[in-house]
Amino acid sequence: MSRPNTATPLERRYAMLGVILIAPTILVFCAVIVYPLFSAIYLSLFQIFTPTLQGSFVGLENYQRLFQRSEFWISLRNTLVWTIGTLTLQILLGVAMALVLHQNLWFRSLARSLILFPYFVSTVVAVLVWRWLFNDLYGILNHLMISVGLIDWPLDFLGSSPNAMISVILVGAWKYFPFVVIAVLARLQTIPEPLYEAAKIDGAGPIARFFDITLPQLREVLVVIILLRAIWDFKEFDLIFLLTGGGPLITTQTLPLLVYKEAFALNQMGMASAYAVVMMAIMLVFMVVYVLKTRNKDESR
């Protein structure tokens, strides 16, 4: 929005104050976000050895090599499998749980707290607990599954493929579905009751009411949740890194893990930056859609 030149001194004084108040934010932003962001793109044009930080300019060579490496494509596929798998579970579980919690449940607020807890607990804690649950010798999961006759022999949850990917997806769903629950629950509480009463009078059963009223009302918020969670799941590092470290071999290695490995285990900072930039470019699609969606909503208010 452009200001006309006719701004009064008072108006200009206010604008100046506004700029002073935002100045610390801008300063910090430039130092720790904007500068590193451009720096990452710049670094991706170099070959840099991490321990010495000595580098030489290689232009777009990193990118050229990157697309030829099968490791990149495998990691990208892993990222997509992980994101789509865990996101689907999060949404299904989350919406179902929100519907349950929306009902008149005994000790509803206690139930809500218990559901919410995994989301806020540290990933480190979550991973430690799950690794103990997954333990092949003494883990309770193997014990339970054997005792009900589901399996005959203890499963290797994290050390074999495709078990590792499935386990990671499950733990991801467990950790992050509460986000969906809370967001959907908040929206459910704003659906006007008369809508349901009107549908009842018109003869709609519970299932028809869900599909004709609840779901359309949730559509908007679900789109936002899916976008947001897709972005966050796509860039997830801690959970996967701590559970499997990308293994066995590289069967659960997603793009963020690849960037980390390249930079701090293989000591190739330039190449790692190139991976990071490509990864961000892929995410940009979702980010732009999300930002535009939010902007539209902001303006319509």
């Binding site: 006309p4 006719t6 701004a7 009064t8 001194p9 008072l10 108006e11």
Partner: peptide, 19 residues
Amino acid sequence: EFPTGGTISIDGKVVNDTA
């Protein structure tokens, strides 16, 4: 709000730039 043109005065004094 700030007028984009003209003057407002109270008691004979222009107040456009008065807080």
